[in-house]
Design a protein around this nucleic acid. Structure first.
Lengths: 193, 193
DNA sequence: TCCGATTATGGTCAAATGACCATCTTTAGT
DNA sequence: ACTAAAGATGGTCATTTGACCATAATCGGA
């Protein structure tokens, strides 16, 4: 029986079946209801996590109460808030479920044990953190340089699956534009065909 | 005689004097003139680097020729383009000197050798990559959520030294606002006192 | 030291964006 | 299946922002 993580590790690493099983067995399952918080701003991130099913968002909240979304869970995979986890500092952002979700969690002692037993896990961790930084940087450049329409088109290009899964106001919060502007863009593109 | 990196490693790591000397000796010095490119978009990043003196910018260029700055060199330290270095893929961005600068460079084989000899260097590398991702993420959040004035005030708060070192159009390119808007903000804050 | 290039500031104007409000539709959870 | 909540769209308006222009000041390299 494959819970999702086995398949992931099979295709993304060279770990043996035995190692993969050990990793999966060490995890604690966790379910999240829609909008349930997994990590709250100010809390210390105490887990590595793998999203088996569902969709999460990583977001910050500003003074007027509005949300701004840094990433969705496919990119979040494994790391949650890397800075908070690594340094045991309060997390700067929140993580919550968008859809009902199923996760696997590893506490720090459990995961450290796995890292000792399975050195190749180090490489994966490093790769994920590095990839995460790369994504943030690409997104930063888009935020600095692209027009709202370019941002939206880029999102449709890069995450076509998410376009239909997400409410528009979250896409707007992800792109850093207002819901109104997003609606206008889509309206214009509709008429154009 | 301290070239700058010795002092840095003394205060930021627990490396011994002997190890520090070995790291410094393995490096190749490099000077950059004002505006000289260290890494060009599309090139593969083949070095780790330490900025002994001067100031660099990491930037992308869009269709109309305008620059958008991702970071300045204090944060760049050591990593240059981590993604390009680690995976030997073409760099997505450029790095150039703002002021005449002095660097130390390590090619991949040389640096790998150091990593083998000095395991603690791994920890430093990881920390720098991780920190870099954290900075990108913080900046992304600011880009998504802050007004131009908030961005500028944040920059003055976080990098007071750079405010006087940089031409305004670069600050604007860093904050993702137009030079005109930046001038307006400063003008308003001037009158307010 | 000097000259050319870079940098800073200001004015005007058009356009894009966001805030607010209302309405209609769809969705989710019981 | 039903109902309340959430989501999507549209209209209007004020504001901000950026583009373009010109000019003055400053800086940097020979």
């Amino acid at each position: 029986m494959t819970t999702g993580i086995e398949a992931y590790l099979h295709t993304h690493t060279r770990l043996s079946d035995e190692e993969i099983a050990r990793i999966a067995l060490a995890a604690t399952p966790r379910s999240l209801r829609r909008n349930e918080l997994l990590l709250q701003e100010g809390q210390i991130c105490r887990h590595k996590a793998f999203v088996v099913k569902g969709l999460l968002r990583n977001f910050g909240v500003v003074a007027d109460g509005s949300e701004h979304i840094l990433q969705f869970s496919p990119e979040d995979t494994w790391t949650l808030d890397a800075e908070s986890y690594d340094r045991s500092t309060p997390s700067a952002f929140n993580i919550a479920a968008i859809e009902p979700s199923e996760l696997l969690l590893w506490t720090r002692p459990v995961f450290n044990r796995l890292l000792e037993e399975i050195p190749e896990l180090h490489a994966l961790s490093l790769q994920l953190i590095s990839r995460n930084g790369y994504n943030s940087r690409q997104r930063l450049f888009a935020a600095l340089s692209a027009t709202p329409e370019e941002k939206y088109n880029g999102f449709v290009r890069d995450c076509p699956d998410l376009v239909s899964r997400l409410p528009l106001h979250m896409i707007a919060a992800y792109l850093g534009i207002s819901l109104k502007t997003l609606t206008r863009i889509r309206h214009a593109q509709w008429q154009q065909r």
